[in-house]
Amino acid sequence: MMQLNCPWCGPRDENEFACGGSSHIARPGLAASDQVWGEYLFFRDNPKGVHRERWRHVQGCGQWFNVARHTVTHEVLSVYAVTDAPPKLG
């Protein structure tokens, strides 16, 4: 059970949160082709490495935020606002 650092509430156990999957996915408009729309719905990167993902602090402040997490070690490299661009991580 990870410990996530909610930007408002501080470090909390993972079971207070819900994971919202990959971040920074642009939502296509109605004019998008079936393929583009299908990729938006179902295709995701599955990196063995740093993954940028959204979490919501459901049992706390209820806010969404972004996390850059290493999928193998679970090391959290960055926590940033849901509307921010992803930070550069060396």
Binding site: C9, G10, P11, R12, D13, N15, E16, Q59, G60, C61
Partner: peptide
Amino acid sequence: GGSASAPKIGEGRRSR
């Protein structure tokens, strides 16, 4: 709950 659940005086903490 967890160790972050207990509020100090002047705090309000929503948690599980």
